[in-house]
Design a protein around this nucleic acid. Structure first.
Lengths: 238, 238
DNA sequence: TTCGTAATTATTGGATACAATCCTGCGGTG
DNA sequence: CACCGCAGGATTGTATCCAATAATTACGAA
C-alpha cells in the first residue's frame, strides 16, 4: 500500500517530465496559474516544486516577474560537460572494480532497454533508459552526493537531449558506443571504459551543441517579440 | 535604493546563517510555525526557503513529518571532501594563470580579513571571510556552475566549520597555511598552490571529522529521547 | 510622431484558513 | 504486563484570498 505522494513531489516530477520532453522549452515563462491548473493543484505546491528546480538551476526566478525555463549558453554547455568529465571519470574508476557479474548483467539489461527504445523510436523512453544505464554505473561508486551532483549536471542539458535523440544517426551511434563500453566493462578494463565513455561524451556534447545553435537561431529569428531578459544580474550581494 | 527583497530570500539567508552559526544544529527539527514566527513571516515563504535548502542537501524533508537539519555521517564528510578535492583542484588550475597582480592583491586583502577575524576571535566572521577568500580564487576560474557546486559542498559542512573555528589552534594553523598559499600564488606556481591547498583541506577534514565524532557522542549520550528517524527510507519509488 | 507619464491589467508574493497526516497517551483486552 | 485500537492534539500540506509589483496600454504634451 503506497501512501499518497504529496502534491509538490507529483508536480516536481511532472515539471521535470515536461522539461525533458520539450513541452516546456528553454526560455519559456512558467505562469503559475496556468501550470497549477494543468497539474490540478493550487499554486503553493507548484511554487515549492519550482523552488527546487530553481536551486538545481533548471529554472530561473526573477523576483516579481516569474519563473523561466533556464536557457543554456554554449559556454554553459561546455562547462557542464567539462564538470561531468571530471566527476564521471572519478565515478567510473571507483565503481568498476566493485561490480560483480550480476551487476554487469543488470547494466547490460539496461543497455538493451535503450536499444529497444531506439528501435521503437520512442525518444522520451530512450532518454530515460539512457539515464538509468549510465547512472547504474555511477551509482555503483557508492557516493550518493556524487550521484546527486551528476544528476544535476545531466538535468541541466535534458531539455536538449530530447531533441538530440530525435535524429536517428545519433540514436545509432549511441547504441554502438554503449555496446563497446559493455565489452570493456565485462573485461573490467577501467581505463578502456573511461576512454570510451569520454569519447561518448565528446560526441554527445558536439551534437547537443549543434542542437543548441539551432535552438538559438530558432528563437532569435522567429519570435523576437518577447524573450527572457538575458541572464544578467546573477549576483547581487552586499 | 535597493528594492525590497522578497521574504523567501531573507528567510533563506537567515536559515543559512542560523545553520552555520549552530543556532540550528544537525538533526534538529525545523518546526515551521516556530521559525516563521521567529523570522516574522508566514509559513509559505519559509517553506519555499526550506525547499531550496532541501535540494541543496542542507535540510531533509520527511513528508508529513517535517524538515530536519541534515546530519553528516563520517562517510558523507569524506565524500564531500573528496569531491571538493576533485573540483577545487580543477578550479585552481583554471584560475591561477588568469590572475593579474590586482586580483592577487584583492585576494591577499581577503586573507588579511580572516586573520583579523581570527585575532578578534569572531568565529562567524572568520568563517565568512574564509569563504570569501577561497571562493575569490575558485570564482576566478570563470565557471559559474563549478562555483555553484563548490558552494553546495561547502554548505554541507558549514554546520561543523563553526565548531572547528572555535578552537584557537585551528585558527592559527589556518592562518599559517593561507600565508603559505599566498606566497605560492604570488609566484603563480599552480602546482605548489594546489599542493598546499590539498594539504590545507586534508587538515580541515581531519579536524572536522573530530568535531563530527564529538557531535555524535553528544547527541547519543545526552538526549537519546527524540532524534531524526535515522536516514533510512531515502528512496521509495514505484 | 515621439517621448514621458498615468491608469489598467496580469501575475507574482504572502497571509490566513482549512484539511490531512502523524505522534501521543489513554484505556481496554488478552 | 504486553499489546493493540482509538481519540485528542500538534504539525504539516494545500487551497483560497488579499496585497504588492511589474508589464501594458492609453493619453497628452513637446
Amino acid at each position: 500500500m503506497n501512501r499518497k505522494a504529496t502534491a509538490q513531489s507529483v508536480v516536481l516530477s511532472a515539471l521535470r517530465e515536461d522539461i525533458v520532453s520539450g513541452v516546456l522549452g528553454p526560455g519559456d515563462q512558467l505562469v503559475q496559474e496556468t501550470l497549477a491548473e494543468r497539474y490540478g493543484v493550487s499554486r503553493v505546491p507548484l511554487r515549492e516544486a519550482l523552488k527546487m528546480l530553481e536551486s538545481e538551476g533548471q529554472v530561473i526566478n526573477h523576483p516579481n516577474r516569474g519563473y523561466f525555463v533556464a536557457e543554456l549558453s554554449v559556454d554553459d554547455l561546455r562547462e557542464v560537460y567539462y564538470l561531468r568529465s571530471l566527476l564521471e571519470d572519478a565515478a567510473l574508476r571507483q565503481a568498476i572494480p566493485t561490480l560483480d557479474d550480476a551487476d554487469i548483467e543488470d547494466i547490460a539489461a539496461l543497455c538493451d532497454e535503450i536499444d529497444d527504445a531506439a528501435l521503437a523510436e520512442d525518444v522520451v523512453l530512450m532518454a530515460a533508459a539512457n539515464r538509468r544505464f549510465h547512472f547504474a554505473i555511477y551509482d555503483a561508486a557508492g557516493m550518493p552526493r556524487l550521484s546527486r551532483l551528476l544528476r544535476q549536471l545531466w538535468d541541466a542539458t535534458d531539455a536538449f537531449r530530447a531533441l538530440y535523440y530525435q535524429r536517428s544517426p545519433n540514436r545509432e551511434r549511441v547504441s554502438a558506443e554503449h555496446a563497446q563500453m559493455m565489452v570493456a566493462l565485462r573485461a573490467r578494463d577501467s581505463d578502456a571504459v573511461v576512454q570510451l565513455h569520454d569519447d561518448h561524451r565528446a560526441h554527445s556534447v558536439a551534437a547537443v551543441e549543434d542542437m543548441l545553435m539551432r535552438h538559438h537561431n530558432r528563437v532569435t529569428e522567429n519570435d523576437s517579440t518577447f524573450r527572457t531578459p538575458a541572464r544578467s544580474s546573477l549576483q547581487e550581494n552586499p
